[in-house]
Design a protein around this nucleic acid. Structure first.
Length: 577
RNA sequence: CGGGGCGUAGCUCAGUUUGGUAGAGCGCACGGUUCGGGACCGUGAGGUCGCACGUUCAAAUCGUGUCGCCCCGACCA
């Protein structure tokens, strides 16, 4: 490809709207342009990268036994009603109507379509196991699209669905996919690590997210500091190892303190945990934070130790509700008869009490009194209040003990590039996708689903592989392997040598750009670094006189002089470096 | 959906407070000088100032509405 013919509009300055590195660089280096919020055109360089990522994904899916299909973007509302997700998915579903006012949606995912296909076409255990996948545009009307390709409203995704006859089959399919995922991301030059996660709207039991560690990641993950343990989890999922025992407080902290009588104290306008710890001179661990949440099943009071944060996902799961929303000031006042900041579990009427096990362990705790400017001291669980439910509600954080081995956990930010789910029978039951076993008995198919965000993966690679000058593509997915830069476009000797190297490399199958633009060398160097070609070949005067050209590695910055004939041999096209 | 901010040339931004002829740098076109890390000189093209309505002799500037975009939060494969 000649640079004069390549549409790669680079920018000198960062676009004002781009916040994170991958967004800035992909726009600046001429890979993408925005069409609307969260919707982008992929220019030639980006599409080149995307096609390569897709090729890798396709090879690994095929190797793992997948068969590629292509399902429609536009999906009729009926099957979404059937699965119940027309309502559940909410405003995130792009909905539209045809000329007859029939409802459709743009597919955010394809469980419904595939299950519909399979229930009609697969009837026998002899046809199992079956793995089908597609690489397709997906549509999600995100509340807040952001960070360029990270969270788009239109994006490219690979989704594979596995169908097995039983749990053992699913486990086998799941493991194959898990391994395939590790290979895919490695081949894309990414360092990922799989973490345990929550299933979210898709549903299912076991699920892993594949995380690319990056400062700009939207997900927080925790992992065990002990290498051999290997525990890693999304914080939302991460369990806290503290369990409540029937023996109660005595088992905690070796604390032999006596239970003291309950007492009211005057705490004028003292509302927050910080204010109370300062005012009463007690540590935050001794406080019981009482948070009122509104759910579709009513209002609950969630109790958590003063030094902890509540994990709303855990709360939602434990209550088995769709919606948990921190109650507003009016609701708090209606329920507690006091202002925000004075809520406490003692004599709190009309709500369900749910407590974290740690709360049960605090002796002589401090809590709100449900009375303005008043707190209670020497509050003790069981004696002064009795929660209807005790459940792990804590948001785990760095330093907390690992649930598997009790070593301290570490925390990191990650970009989720893939997720695998064991769906089980969730969709096959609701949509009636069954098969007949050897005994002629009808059974629901056992499903798994496995996604990879293709366009997000491209952004994640930029996020993980860049420097102050631009992107550093691995050879495996670089838009081109190399760029040839004649330093002076008006020097015929340089141009001739550059042209001959260009022809030579092309004839050996190396993907190369000849930067034949009438620009000064500096401009070409800047663009080469910005775009991130793995190799750069500079044809300059001094080099020409010695019959040698420069070969430079984008990632390592190593340089060497080679004769044109030596270049092909010197180019190291090891994919992932 | 709550809070905040911004819409002026392809890009980055001034100008809006105090209404009166549309600006700069970069990019682009042409000519010249340059030529190994985003050169310089000259000439030039390019804008319904997001859109609509209103106030006014006069609106980029004031008012109302509306659309779009960005950030924080909530939410999310």
């Amino acid at each position: 490809m000649r640079a004069t013919q390549l549409l790669a509009p680079t920018l000198r300055e960062n676009p004002a709207e781009a916040e994170i590195t991958s967004h800035q660089l992909l726009v600046r280096a001429g890979f993408i342009r925005k069409v609307a919020a969260g919707i982008y055109t992929y220019l030639p360089l980006a599409w080149q990268v995307i096609k390569k990522i897709i090729k890798i994904v396709r090879e690994e899916m095929d190797r793992a036994g997948g068969q590629e299909i292509l399902m429609p973007i536009i999906q009729p509302a009926e099957i979404w009603h059937e699965s119940g997700r027309w309502e559940v998915y909410g405003p995130e579903l792009f909905r539209l109507q045809d000329r007859h006012n029939r409802d459709f949606c743009l597919g955010p995912t394809h469980e419904e379509i595939i299950t519909d296909l399979i229930r009609n076409e697969v009837n026998s255990y002899r046809q199992l196991p079956l793995c089908l996948y597609q690489i397709q545009n997906k549509y999600r009307d995100e509340k807040r699209p952001r960070f360029g390709l990270m969270r788009g409203r239109e994006f490219i995704m690979k989704d594979l669905y596995s169908f097995d006859r039983d749990e053992a089959g699913l486990e086998n399919s799941y493991q194959k996919m898990f391994q395939a995922y590790l290979r895919i991301f490695k081949r894309c030059g990414l360092q990922v690590f799989p973490v345990e996660a929550e299933a979210g709207a898709i549903g299912g039991k076991d699920t892993h997210e594949f995380m690319v560690l990056a400062e700009t990641g939207e997900a927080t993950i925790v992992f065990c500091s002990r290498q051999s343990c290997g525990y890693a989890s999304n914080v939302e999922k991460a369990a806290s190892p503290v369990q409540y025992s029937a023996q109660g407080r005595a088992s905690y902290a070796g604390d032999s303190e006596e239970l003291l009588p309950l007492k009211e104290v005057y705490t004028p306008n003292i509302r927050t945990v910080e204010e109370i710890t300062a005012f009463l001179n007690v540590p935050a661990q001794r406080l019981i934070k009482s948070l009122l949440y509104e759910t579709e099943k009513g209002i609950v009071a969630a109790l958590i130790r003063g030094d902890r944060e509540l994990n709303e996902v855990k709360l939602q799961k434990v209550l088995d509700v769709q919606r948990v929303e921190l109650a507003g000031a009016e609701t708090v006042e209606r329920i507690t008869k006091a202002g925000v900041g004075f809520t406490g579990p003692v004599n709190l009427e009309g709500v369900q009490l749910i407590a974290d096990p740690e709360v049960m362990a605090v002796k002589n705790a401090v809590s709100g009194a449900n009375k303005n400017d008043t707190h209670l001291v020497n509050v003790n669980a069981e004696r002064d209040f009795k929660p209807g439910l005790i459940a792990d509600l804590r948001l785990v954080k760095a330093g907390d003990p690992c649930p598997d081995c009790l070593f301290p956990l570490k925390e990191a930010k990650g970009i989720e590039v893939g997720q695998t789910f064991k769906l089980g029978e969730k969709y096959s039951r609701t949509l009636g996708a069954n098969y007949l076993d050897e005994n002629g008995r009808q059974k629901p198919l056992v499903m798994g689903c496995y996604g990879i965000g293709i366009t997000r993966t491209m952004a994640a690679v930029v996020e993980q592989r860049h420097d102050e000058n631009g992107i550093i593509w691995p050879v495996s997915i670089a838009p081109f392997h190399a760029v040839i830069i004649p330093v002076n476009q008006k020097d015929n000797r340089q141009v001739d040598i550059a042209e001959s190297i260009y022809n030579l490399l092309q004839s050996t199958g190396i993907e190369v750009v000849l930067d034949d633009r009438p620009e000064r060398a500096g401009v070409k160097f800047k663009d080469a670094d910005l775009i991130g070609y793995p190799w750069r070949i500079v044809v300059g005067n001094k080099a020409v006189e010695k019959g040698k050209v420069e070969l430079r590695n984008r990632a390592t910055k190593e340089e060497g002089l080679f004769s044109p004939e030596e270049i092909v041999g010197a180019l190291n096209l090891t994919p992932y470096t």
